[in-house]
Design a protein around this nucleic acid. Structure first.
Lengths: 198, 198
DNA sequence: CGAAGTAGAGAACGATCGTTCTCTCTCTGG
DNA sequence: CCAGAGAGAGAACGATCGTTCTCTACTTCG
């Protein structure tokens, strides 16, 4: 467990530094100092910087998934769960450490030269879309709603990051309300017709 | 004019390389070879790599603005102009060279360490939002519509880049239709009431 | 023709990167 | 008390980066 403690401390430190300054701007020596471990131990735990990057991405994925799900679970009904996605974003955007989605950033930085990073970012976004799709299905919405909400969430992240303000979360949430409303109306109308016809 | 020709050739080459491989992954020597100029001439035209990056950002901003406006101008009515934004995105996403929004990417890569890059990315996004706001105002939509459509456009860009498919453009366009419809309905209802009251 | 200024090619330089090696110190087993 | 394994600190290494310098060749003007 001690060996795991130092490992997770390295990953957590790397996560913070990579988020704050970008991956390529943080050298192994800076990470070593910040994590308070020897360079030898660092390379004992990880064979290369690339493997640290992948470990950080895994940590981010887990953190995002758990945090999002915790917020969504607090919502009462399926429609509120869909909107809770944007409440989670709002809380995230207000953190001082927020500098945009770590997967979008790492993809932008390394996606073209590191297939592993590109693939992991793709899978992360795919899993988010599937998560939204499950929530939308629970709400009885037609399948086209999930990509729409996912795109809104992605856009809110980059907009908030570049603008430096959390406004985009609320704006995206209001847009989501409209889209959900319209999709549910269409579904009810569609299923009603189909139901009466079937 | 010849001095300007070599300069623009350098910028165009740098744009292509930076887009394809990321800024930090492209060295001055690679740029020199690809542009077919001597290292001396390169540093004669630009004092540093950073200034080339800024010149590339300017070129991207101009290219984006002109391309978008050309597509928008072809649309007949204000509502179609708003939707034309997503048609422009669709065409862009289908290009082989598409690797995401260059401003999002450069912000992710250098925003934390280069205030100039961060500021330019912010201004670019701001100008896009103002452009959308003007189109939305022409359509008679309430002011909240523009940020919603901007966020959709941003999200479509990152989604398409990471997923590697152009699907997001169409999905965002459909969402935009719903949002525009709802906003115009609300505006007509609101102005109708206000007008009858005033 | 001859001299001088200019441009190109690439070597060179200092800095920094990821990674490895060395040296020293400590801790443990007998 | 001692021998040896292991860990920490940081020097060292090769590669690469951005940037500058050198050397050569060509061109142009008198």
């Amino acid at each position: 467990m001690d060996i795991s403690e130092v490992r997770s401390r390295i990953i957590a430190t790397a996560d913070g530094l990579y988020n704050a300054k970008g991956i390529q701007s943080v050298g192994m020596d800076e990470l070593r100092t910040a994590a308070g471990v020897s360079l030898k131990k660092l390379y004992q735990e990880f064979p290369s910087k690339g493997s640290i990057v992948m470990a950080v991405l895994e940590r981010r994925h887990q953190s995002w998934t758990e945090g999002l799900d915790a917020t969504v679970r607090q919502a009462a009904d399926p429609r509120a769960k869909l909107l809770a996605i944007f409440d989670y974003l709002a809380g995230w955007f207000c953190q001082d450490s927020f500098r945009g989605c770590g997967f979008i950033n790492s993809f932008a930085e390394l996606g073209a030269v590191s297939p592993d990073v590109a693939e992991y970012a793709r899978k992360h976004k795919e899993s988010f879309q599937e998560y939204v799709a499950a929530l939308a299905a629970d709400a009885g919405a037609p399948p086209y709603l999930a990509p729409q909400l996912s795109i809104l969430a992605e856009g809110a992240q980059t907009t908030a990051a570049i603008a430096g303000t959390p406004d985009a979360a609320g704006q995206a949430r209001q847009a989501a309300e409209v889209l959900i409303e319209a999709a549910l109306l269409a579904a009810r109308a569609g299923s009603g017709l189909a139901g009466s016809a079937g």
